[in-house]
Amino acid sequence: MNDTSQTATPTLEARGISKYFGAVTALEEVNLKVMPGEVLGVVGDNGAGKSTLMKVLSGLHPASKGQLFVSGQAVHFHGPRDARNRGIEMVYQDLALAGNMRIDENIFLGREQLRGGIFVNHQANARKAQEHLDKLKIHVKSVSQRVEELSGGQRQAVAIARATAFDAKVVIMDEPTAALAIKEVRKVLDLIKDLKNHGVSVILISHRMDDIFYVCDRVMALFRGRNFAEAQLGQTDRNEVIGWIMGNKQQSTETSKNHDLN
């Protein structure tokens, strides 16, 4: 499961992705791939294009140019629903939860279990939500609590629970630890390790080197909307990665060359 050899098919691959917002170029010819059971860290300065790239991968933004492949198959997403149906889930930077609704409703939003084809099966959804949270070792008082009553860490957990409730192949997390206390950060990172051990691919965006060096197998840097550098974690160090974020590549190592995608 932890094998990330170059011969396997990537769970998710993006080739030559460009994204323009009117005159603004957010992404230019960006490549990315992630293997089964691999945790890919994505770093970059504010405005480097990390969130935009992830929104393209999760179907929220259509790419202006480029092609996506899921398990080697070319795909075209018309919206988040298409991406979710292909097993690509995302935890958004702003979490994207409906605070006025219950935890279980948020977890199954858009994918509610029905009874008789018409009515939402609230009992089944609540039970499944509880089971899923138990599996993730996430503790809440009750799944019928409204999300607005939860702490920041609990909300983060609910967002992660939603992204993992349906056997995701790829889970994309946009700065999941940015707003958390140390103890909760550790919990989220351990959760990522858990996902990895179940063969799920994870893409983690983070500004915290501690996060990157705790869970990732590989790290790639974006700079001004372009691929800048990448390396297996064992073949780089914090200072080098921090340099990449600032746009420095003096210590350019062989590893990063090897992993450059044509």
Binding site: P80, R84, A98, N100
Partner: peptide, 24 residues
Amino acid sequence: NHTRTGRHIYAIGGNPQAARVSGI
């Protein structure tokens, strides 16, 4: 309270972005 569309109406009111990214 008991249909999917009905719950989605509340979800849209709570956070339209959450509704959108959930595929609604």
